[in-house]
Design a protein around this nucleic acid. Structure first.
Lengths: 210, 210
DNA sequence: ACACAACCTGACCAAGCGGTCAAGAAAATT
DNA sequence: AATTTTCTTGACCGCTTGGTCAGGTTGTGT
């Protein structure tokens, strides 16, 4: 019985360890940057000896690359909210909601991404020139279509996208600053709700859809 | 003649060296992060032997602290554009212009600041809790005054400020990404003009002042 | 001219880094 | 039960790092 594909203890612990390492690495890379992070610190946080990290990930760069790639995937999936929307209010509104949720749930990932780009994207330059550029051009076309159809104000779609990215990611990348200005307390559920609403209010009115 | 306060060769070279070191440090810290930056790299870029750096700045952290403080000063001065404005359109418009200009002229400084905050502001936490918090509360009051006077839409001043910071600094912190999406070419004068105008267009309409 | 203080720097050091490896433990296969 | 494969780990290594320091050089006040 239960002859279903057993997880095979080997693969199971492998997955567990990889996840523990990636989770620890994301945090350490986010808090210390690539240069400031040490394999020892990641190992301690993951609860494994340092040598074991090098069994799963040959080099520090390999580990870092995986962390950045994973984030990029999550980040791109927020685009799904963008598509299948007939009008800008719902499409862009949903995109803001999705990006804000990512900032809340994956602040470390957002920081690693920001750090990578700030340092000249030495690891993911190909992603910027490939996937991201294609994605961007596609959304610009969608937004331009809305403008041409008279559904929103004639702003530059490109700069609107930058504003959306900047504003939503600010709550992750500059989360510490936001928290400090919130009297040192993390944002509550209501605070996040408020932030989301305010971003949508200003931007949607800014592009003339309310 | 010329008995005016002579610069005194000593102080002159001191100032020159300090400026060379700080300029080099800003660039290296921005490109590599605190952890990734090395005193040797900064020394080479400044054209001085490494030991000489330690004569002017005792430790790497001291040097870093000075870089961050200098940036904070520049950053705060952009607030001057905010004050002495009777209506939100000119006040916030001027603030956006000023912050965009800083992003263009001091991208490295902006990156160092961003990096510092992203890593939990280990060095400038007191600035966040003191000067920045006071500054923020003050501007929130100004904006709230405009709202109460019916001069703009009733949005949350706090989140408007976050949006302003995020959007304007995006062109510095994510300059590499912006450049890549601009076909790998740096933004031209016209591009910057366009960016400025678009940010002002969307935000000013977003807060209901156009 | 002299003496004193400020400045400069090549050589050096302890500490910590990423990464290696050999030998053993544990699981899977036969 | 034996064997092979995968996984685990303490000890170790070469290298780079931030920082030091003694001794020389340069500028300044007297």
């Amino acid at each position: 019985m239960t002859s279903q594909t057993r997880p095979s203890k080997r693969l199971e612990t492998r997955r567990e360890n990889e996840r523990a390492i990636l989770s620890a690495a994301e945090k350490v890379f986010a808090e210390a940057g690539f240069g400031g992070a040490t394999m020892q610190l990641i190992a301690d946080l993951a609860g494994l000896p340092k040598a074991n990290l090098h069994y799963y990930f040959a080099t520090k760069e390999d580990l870092y690359r995986r962390v950045v790639q994973d984030i990029f995937e999550i980040w791109l999936h927020a685009a799904d909210s963008f598509d299948n929307a007939a009008d800008p209010a719902s499409g862009i509104g949903a995109y803001i909601d999705a990006k804000m949720e990512i900032s809340r749930r994956h602040p470390n990932g957002s920081k690693v991404w920001a750090s990578e780009v700030m340092h000249g994207a030495p690891v993911i330059q190909d992603y910027l020139e490939g996937t991201l550029r294609d994605w961007t051009e596609g959304r610009i076309a969608v937004i331009q279509g809305w403008i041409d159809a008279g559904k929103m104000a004639p702003i530059s779609p490109r700069h609107l996208l930058y504003m959306l990215w900047a504003t939503t990611q600010h709550y992750a990348d500059f989360g510490h600053q936001v928290e400090t200005l919130n009297n040192g307390k993390p944002l509550s559920d209501a605070d996040w709700q408020m932030a989301k609403q305010q971003v949508k209010d200003i931007i949607l009115r800014g592009i003339g859809v309310v």
